[in-house]
């Protein structure tokens, strides 16, 4: 496990109406660590992931990034978000911009990078995710797997300290899942700090340093993949694993 803490959640709570979707969440993600969050739907996984860059507000508790607490809405929050990349289930590529423009936009607007420098870097990143030849297409002209790889390149363009993945392969056809997971595995090997909400148990086994099992708004288990998959402690996790590993 890597040394110092990059992302730290302490006693985080959130409700959606009567539903207590995050209950006293404590979680530490070390620099360079890959944490996979798994669990049944509605268990709070996505909310947890989105709370880390404050796309969801929390009611109590603290979230710190690199030692700094999450700021309120405003310039400071925008700055902090620039340092944490996010990859969404539905890709969310900017539909009116080309692939290249999608990747270049935030560096130009937020980091004030020069246009040609941003373009050069964007092409490098597209090359890294295997899409250099698609730079001038619009998102709708790409397959889901390709769109998600562009979304990863777009997040990487900000040179983030950490990447959050909110079910990055759940909206993909089965044959496209692997191309995205392969890019994510490569990022993990390169030492990127990652929080990955996913149902891909293969990825959890092969790429994660830790598996966090969430159910009913709580973290039920937080262990190495090896331990978790071979000998889950809680009934809830045993039940979950028996359901998904059977077929």
């Amino acid at each position: 496990m890597a040394g110092d803490a990059l992302i730290e959640l302490r006693g985080v709570n959130k409700h959606y109406g009567a539903l207590h979707v995050l209950q006293d969440i404590d979680l530490t993600v070390g620099r360079g660590e890959v944490v996979v969050v798994i669990g049944p739907s509605g268990g709070g996984k996505s909310t947890l992931c989105r709370a880390i860059n404050r796309l969801e507000t929390v009611e109590s508790g603290t979230i710190t990034l690199d030692g700094r607490p999450l700021p309120e809405e405003g310039r400071a929050l925008a700055q902090l978000r620039a340092e944490v990349g996010m990859v969404f289930q539905s890709f969310n590529l900017f539909a009116h911009k080309t692939v290249l423009a999608n990747v270049m936009l935030a560096p130009i607007k937020v980091r004030k990078t020069k246009r040609d420098e941003a373009a050069r870097r964007a092409r490098e990143l597209l090359d890294r995710v295997g899409l250099a030849n698609q730079a001038d297409k619009y998102p709708a002209q790409l397959s889901g797997g390709q769109q998600q790889r562009v979304a990863i390149a777009r997040a990487l363009a900000m040179e983030p300290k950490a990447l959050l993945f909110d079910e990055p392969t759940s909206a993909l056809d089965p044959e496209m899942i692997n191309e995205v997971l392969e890019v994510m595995r490569q990022l993990a090997r390169d030492g990127m700090t990652m929080v990955v909400v996913t149902h891909e148990m293969g990825f959890a086994r092969s790429a994660a340093n830790r598996v966090v099992f969430m159910a009913d708004g709580r973290i039920v288990e937080d262990r190495t993949p090896e331990d978790f998959f071979t000998a889950p402690r809680s009934e809830r996790a045993k039940d979950f694993l028996s359901k998904i590993l059977k077929h």
Binding site: F88, N92, F94
Partner: peptide
């Protein structure tokens, strides 16, 4: 405009005026 468009822009560190002007209004 799908909310995900604005969320993606915000997650990249774009300010509210940038999100509105560069992403949401053009669409």
């Amino acid at each position: 405009v799908p909310t995900g468009q604005g969320e993606a822009a915000r997650s990249l560190g774009m300010s509210f005026p940038q999100t509105l002007g560069d992403i949401v209004l053009p669409q």
